[in-house]
């Protein structure tokens, strides 16, 4: 559903008001960060990618025709960026024989609850093991609470395929996280 305030800011931006774009960033920065974090599962990359989402949005906003809501459009940019990022990460792991450095695991501080930390890592591993598009569908449905219709728009697939992706993701997580219940 289109948001009137968004539409008005987009029109102002298209008419040359740069500050209107700032308002759009401020409105959606937390939601976009949350989405990118859920997809890449670490702060450093999520911070970088969420900022990049807005840079891409700025480049293309004049061409945006509002056939979907601004947030759905922004989410599509974020998902595509994160999918490409995750593929590159997977490829870097594959090329580790060429001595490409891996990110170190985050260390657990003494006061951190070991059980929670263990669960977090298990969730990280499980979610990261999902194929990129399945992972994106899962995050959009489970955490962004988007309907299948919008997920289908974002992922450029049918609603049926979005639903199937989500079910497969849940089944896989169920299998991978069985021991942590």
């Amino acid at each position: 559903m289109k948001d009137e305030r968004d539409s008005s800011l987009i029109q102002e931006f298209k008419q040359g008001d740069e500050k209107a774009f700032n308002q759009l960033v401020l409105r959606y920065q937390k939601r976009v960060y949350d989405l990118t974090y859920r997809l890449v599962r670490n702060h450093e990359d999520a911070a970088d990618l969420s900022q990049e989402v807005f840079v891409r949005a700025y480049s293309n906003l004049r061409k945006f025709e509002e056939r979907s809501s601004f947030y759905v459009w922004l989410t599509r940019i974020a998902v595509n960026l994160c999918i490409n990022f995750s593929k590159r990460e997977r490829f870097r792991s594959f090329l580790s024989i060429f001595d490409i450095s891996q990110k170190p695991e985050v260390s657990v501080s003494p006061e951190e609850d070991v059980e929670k930390e263990e669960l977090r890592r298990a969730l990280d591993r499980a979610v990261k093991s999902l194929p990129e598009r399945q992972r994106a569908t899962f995050v959009l449905k489970r955490y962004q609470e988007l309907p299948y219709r919008e997920i289908a728009q974002i992922m450029e697939i049918s609603e049926g395929a979005a639903k199937a992706n989500y079910f497969q993701a849940v089944k896989k997580l169920q299998k991978l996280l069985g021991q942590y219940r």
Partner: peptide
């Protein structure tokens, strides 16, 4: 099992 998975996922928060 599905219920337990959802409970587990609900515990996770984005820092």
């Amino acid at each position: 099992e599905i219920e337990r998975l959802y409970q587990l996922l609900a515990k996770e928060r984005v820092p």
